[in-house]
């Protein structure tokens, strides 16, 4: 098994280091619309509707939705151990930013655009928010 590794710069929002398999959504996320007991996205029309976000490094556009349910969504997922390990976004907005900081989930933005051409679902992604570095490893058969 050979490995293909790429490193990208990013900007820290919520501190921490974590890694997991990549899951890419083309849409904004509201974690209240993820079933806490399973980690499955129930937001109708989201490009990852029906997918499981448990333990992933979740890559999406940004947050959407109400100012209180976002934190509760992340909190419930954290309690059931179904939360994403880290999050990579394009558009930071205060509700998601505050929720991630409160729930201590690493969150970064301002990623090198090449990252988005490279990363695919299932890649192993390490997010080091503290150093501002993302490492993408493609597993090859």
């Amino acid at each position: 098994m050979s490995q293909d590794q790429n490193v990208f710069k990013c900007h820290k929002i919520s501190k921490g280091v974590a890694s997991g398999e990549a899951l890419v959504s083309q849409d904004d996320m509201n974690f209240y619309m993820v079933e806490p007991s399973t980690g499955i996205v129930v937001d109708r029309g989201n490009s990852i509707e029906g997918r499981n976000i448990t333990g992933t490094v979740l890559i999406f556009r940004g947050g959407k939705g109400s100012s209180v349910v976002m934190a509760d969504g992340l909190y419930q997922l954290t309690m059931t151990k179904r939360a994403p390990r880290a999050m990579i976004i394009k558009n930071p907005e205060t509700v998601l930013v505050a929720s991630a900081i409160v729930m201590k989930i690493p969150l970064v933005d301002r990623v090198d655009p090449k990252f988005y051409d490279t990363v695919q679902d299932g890649d192993l992604v390490e997010v080091d928010a503290n150093q501002g570095i993302i490492t993408v490893t493609r597993k090859q058969a």
Binding site: S67, V68, A71, T94, V95
Partner: peptide, 9 residues
């Protein structure tokens, strides 16, 4: 006001 989360407000 920014779009505060309940917690940040």
């Amino acid at each position: 006001s920014n779009r505060e989360a309940s917690q940040s407000a």
